[in-house]
Design a protein around this nucleic acid. Structure first.
Lengths: 197, 197
DNA sequence: CTTTTTCTTGAGTGATCGTTCAAAAACGGA
DNA sequence: TCCGTTTTTGAACGATCACTCAAGAAAAAG
């Protein structure tokens, strides 16, 4: 059956994701990837096809992990609003965590992707929309359960929350933001909770 | 006195700013700049020294223009809070305006600058701090004038507002965000106004 | 007009980019 | 052990990167 691969595909994808998340797409060279993945160019191309395809796979892994983290938080929470608030507070902890970057990889990609890369652009926006839709569903559930006002607009609240999170995490990228980020996250979380009847 | 330069330095800087703002630092090549500035590499290097130096000059121009726009808005407003709210609403109009990008150039730069470019990073963060300080001064003036609560924390409010604006403009970079951005801006503006006594 | 000074031009530099591919290495099956 | 298959390796490729500099062009000074 031929030689068996020596690498763990998911571990490699994770390493690629962490490197791309930290450095962005254009500032990450194949040399950087060879080092981080401990693979030679031929193997990388046999496994993933191209730098851009690898990036997309890494980005997809990032978005999927983020969504499942949100799902877990929501499942553990006592109510939709409590879940969303807990999610925001968790994000406020990024300044203490040792993550590759404090900014969101989707936002970083959106901002560094000019309009001449339409496929990548569309992928990123799709992934953002999926998370925003999850927010909207939570707000809708909260409304239907009577937790928030019956005339609340789930889509509008979801867009606002996503924009607030984008800002929180972009702000967190500043090296002098450590103490302020948790306060901002707390403020956003309380705004969400303030929607309650 | 020798040959006189054929270009207008400020017009060139403006064109460079617009190109860098739209495409980011790493995705803008010298070929792109030659086209946008209508200058050959020798002239560009004689005038600005390096691609990075030109970028920094363009970034500085961007930040200065943004600050003076804020000052103008504040000067025209009937009160500090009214000025800040007007500023946010003006930013909500970026989706209709024909700007090089809807995202903030400072945020784009912060997110695409890895930690191995410390000087550029520090410049960007300094410029962000200047704007945040302007926000804080407005909130302090509002507090001292009795427009908002006497126990309000100007620095905290300023950090929160800046994060909200970062998020608004990052969100606005999405191609499907047109109708939502103005609503989000309106929400942020009303939050600012809601601080009033 | 001639000289002097400054600016502009654009071909060319070495380095690095993403990518390819022939050869070598490592496995399973017979 | 030998074969067939698959993976890994790393040198090499053309393209492009930021950047340089000798030569030409244009202005001011004499």
């Amino acid at each position: 059956m031929g030689r068996t691969a020596t690498y763990d595909r998911d571990a490699v994808l994770k390493a690629a994701m962490e490197l791309f998340w930290a450095r962005g797409y254009h500032t990450t060279s194949l040399k950087d990837l060879e080092r981080a993945l401990d693979m030679r160019p031929g193997s990388i191309y046999a496994a993933f096809g191209s730098k851009e395809a690898l990036f997309r796979a890494a980005l997809d892994r990032y978005a999927t992990a983020g969504r499942s983290a949100l799902e877990d938080t929501m499942a553990q929470a006592s109510s939709p609003i409590a879940g969303l608030a807990a999610h925001v507070r968790m994000l406020g902890g990024i300044v203490r965590a040792a993550a590759p970057s404090r900014a969101c990889m989707l936002v970083k990609t959106l901002l560094e992707t000019p309009e001449d890369e339409p496929e990548l652009r569309r992928s990123v926006e799709d992934m953002m929309r999926q998370t925003e839709t999850a927010f909207a569903e939570a707000f809708r559930a909260a409304r239907d359960a009577g937790e928030i006002a019956s005339d609340a607009d789930p889509e509008r609240l979801a867009a606002r929350l996503q924009a607030a999170i984008f800002g929180l995490r972009a702000y967190a990228q500043r090296s002098d933001a450590a103490d302020k980020v948790e306060r901002i996250a707390e403020d956003i979380a309380r705004d969400v909770e303030a929607l309650r009847n």
